[in-house]
Nucleic acid binder design. Structure first.
Lengths: 147, 147
DNA sequence: GGATTAAATGATAATTATTATTAAATAATA
DNA sequence: TATTATTTAATAATAATTATCATTTAATCC
């Protein structure tokens, strides 16, 4: 079982054990969430599911993602002037590189956060439960096309 | 001249040299922005300015903040389910500690970002121009009141 | 100081992403 | 297979922000 299949199974288990029904629409949505590494938006997920269920409603996609988010199985990345993007492949806080041109979002594997979090704790007196680290710039493709 | 006065003067200069007029409403808004360390929202700034100019419109506050943001003199912190908050006191990217309970936002002075940014550059191939680092948790006050 | 003019204000309409509502359909269970 | 609570689809509502536009005003020039 590869990583995505594992994620799908985890989502399924989590939904079932919390009393949620597995509808075909819901199944299609979590399949997309578990396999996508591109951080799709609700709209993009909606367009994909529509290929299989042409009558699906956008609200259905929104509600499913809300449920899955509440179960902690998808990470939401919200933005000022853009729609939210979702990571169901690795739904735990981690740094992202975000292209200001094409809106591509790429994961970073860097982890110097333990130290950093501890320092913020000491500096501010906050207890820290979560974080969000984004780097904004131009992806390699958009750097090239700007030359 | 203290830090806030300095910030006010910088904002004024920047506005004038870009051909913007200094209206009393605009002056009141940049005074608030330059002195606030609490990261006020548009609504909060609007309420404050209304004490001096009772007929000011919310749209005027929005438009002024947009102008000042475009000049790089205020930092916008946008959120998923909350209104944006603004930092005109130190409008350059820096880490924040954000209380999930009372929405207080506290600056962090930590700077291990040079290293980190360089590593993200190498890892992703992105050119990085900007970043956003938020830590979410409970401030000391809200920790106490939860006991 | 007063006339000129481009920009700003205030009031309100429009927009956009997201959430709420509700009647009809359906997955899970007995 | 019948029952029932959940889900779906369609659409209305919401909330933050932006756009529009007639009126007012700050800055500039004489």
């Amino acid at each position: 079982m590869n990583v995505s299949e594992n994620r799908l199974q985890t989502m399924l288990d989590r939904l079932k054990s919390n009393g949620y029904k597995i509808t075909p629409q819901r199944m299609a949505i979590i399949k997309i969430l578990s396999t996508s590494i591109g951080h799709p938006s609700v709209e993009e997920i909606y367009e994909q599911v529509k290929k299989i269920f042409p009558t699906i409603s956008l609200a259905t996609v929104y509600k499913n993602i809300l449920v899955i988010k509440e179960l902690g199985e998808v990470l939401e990345l919200a933005f000022a002037n853009d729609r939210s993007r979702y990571d169901g492949h690795y739904p735990y806080p981690h740094p992202h590189a975000i292209c200001m041109e094409c809106k591509k979002i790429v994961d970073s594997q860097l982890d110097i956060l333990q130290d950093f979090t501890q320092k913020v704790r000491e500096e501010t007196g906050f207890s820290i439960y979560n974080h969000r680290i984004d780097f904004f710039g131009l992806c390699p493709d958009c750097q090239r096309s700007k030359q």
